[in-house]
Design a protein around this nucleic acid. Sequence first.
DNA 1: ATAGGGTTAG
Length: 731
Amino acid sequence: MVKADASAVVDLLLRRSHGGDQQREEELRSLLTSAPFTASHLLQVIRSLPDADAALRFFDWCRSQDGSSVPSALALHGPSAYQAIFELANRQQGPRPPCARLKDLLDRSTEQGYALTLDSAVILVRAFGTAGLLEDVLRVVRSLKASLRRASICNGVLRLLFDANDSRYRAEAFALVREMLRSPHPRCRADSDTGSIVYSTLLRRNKLVDEEAVALVIEMAEHRIFPSDDAQLSQLINKLCWSRQTDGACNFLQAVRNAGGVVGASPWNSLLSGLSRVGDVQRMNILFAEMEEMGHHRNVVTFGIVINNLCKSRRIGDALQVLDNMTGGSSNSAEVVPDVVIFNTVIDGLCKARRLEEGLALLERMKKELRCTPNTVTYNTLIDGFCKAGEIDRAHGLLARMNDEEISPNVVTMNTLIDGMCRHGRVSSALEFFRGLQLDADVDVKGNAVTYSILIGAFLRVNNLNKAREMLEEMQNCGIRPDAITYFTMISGLSQAGKLDEALSVASTMEKDGYSLDTKSYNILIAGFCRKKRLDRARDLLDEMVGKGLNPDDVTFNTFIAALSKIKDFTSAHLLLEKMIERGYKPTAITCGALIHGYCRADDMNAAMDIFRSMDAAGVQPSTMIYNILIDYLSKKKEPVAALSLGDEMLGRGLLPTTVTYNALFRCLKEHHMLSEAFQLMDRMKEQNLRPDYITVEILSGWLPAVGEVAKLKTFIQEDDLPEGLEAEVC
DNA sequence: ATAGGGTTAG
């Protein structure tokens, strides 16, 4: 038997013909029939041809021999022939890009009814993928026989599809992964590469995970395609929780466990903190118990999460209980030993519950009994507690203690103190404190955007706009970029101060700086313009926000309804009210209050009372504010009896009158010389622990002494402690 | 585990 000789065929094909085409074809036929000519011979021949055109001519010739004795068999080797032709075309430089030629060739091979070989598919996917021709990549994969859709090639396709960052291609990728998971062909099944592609794609930044993705990863887990390690698993659980897929996170983690994936403590901790964030205490408890059953699956972080949850939901007693158990309060074999984070969490809980002394006591206990060294955070937490309670001096005392104990203060320490001082009437001391630290060579704490935001907010609150502007400029000069909060602080302060144009200009700077305004920011600006009765500008802003795809919310509606009521345009106000309801926002006490207030101002008591009395039926609880509006109005209308009776009515509803309520009533009672009623109210205020404010004092001072009741007045306004703000500085 | 912001009615 003569061995088939590919090189002889190549020689013949490449040689210039001497005896004409006829003779050459004869020679070729005889060469090809002299021995079995296999697919691999054919590959060898075609690969040796100079280009795809030559190869196509040869292969077409072979096909045209169909029916003649032997070469017809060659046509059966079409898939291999095209593979070699694709190789040639892919290598070839020419006027047309290789992809365009490859597409034509793929069309031809499809028309001729040839399937793709695995190698053809590899060549085409790579070429189309590199050129970004994803539709063609998909076409190649779809036309490839199921048994040839090997994991290796599919993984490449998955990378391309995910990299496109396009929802359509993402859906295609998900479908492909599903197919791989379910494939009956072992070499086509999803493998660890598939897993790492999918998992790392889902972990990419700025993309939330949707339900479809959750379903996919659960199916992957069921097929034992797990994240590479606990760290990646934890990250994924975290991401699922942040994407509001807490259920999905639970199901996924369970699926991993059920399929035999090894899971340490950290993924469970991630899930636990996800549950904590959405306030799902019930499932937290189940999980906490399950983690114990699973063996060594609770660590100090687990306890930290639970304690943090208890503290944030104001269950300090329970948090202390858990801490006690940890420190061997009830059993001597504590599961885990609390660390400084646990103590800090509990101390913060105590401080936020205004139990400062207990916080301090715990600081001592952790040092002495439990041999745990407090750190900067411990002190910062306590300093914040004392600042919020107005005990600025004790806060500074703690700072001094930090220095004694060589625990270095940081920027949070400084900012906490600055904020505390600012909020307790010491804005300029706060600024001096800040300046002092910046000059102090021993202190290397620098101000940051938070520092400046605090100071800017403080100056705005005391209406010192110039100083606020100065601070903004100073921070920029120092190379500290304002962040979103700095801008919001500025915008809000300026709006409140009626500097709307400046507020708008800050808003546009903010946008140039890459931050965007949200509905709340627009509400602030809209309210500012409404207060100035520039409803046209407010409307413009509404259009602007809608144009940006931001939906007006209930506050936006209430703002406009209030503004329209204020200018007595009740028709428009009611139209807007209907629109608000259409949009699915229920009117609240604020909505009703806005209308009631409008009608009172328009001196239409009937309309005001109609709305007021219709609230119960509408299921809207009247608020203290609404009573205040009505009582104030009745007082001005010189109707003390009606005003007093509303005052009683609110008590019956469990609403406590405020100083504002009492002031309105006092004003009215004074005019009608209803002294004994006033005394009753004064007693009630005392019982309620309400302090008279400067308006109360003004009204009563102009009345009681004139009717010989100075003593009564004095005992009433004399308070055991100094009125707040007495030591306030003028800035 | 700790620090700063914002809208609606008196």
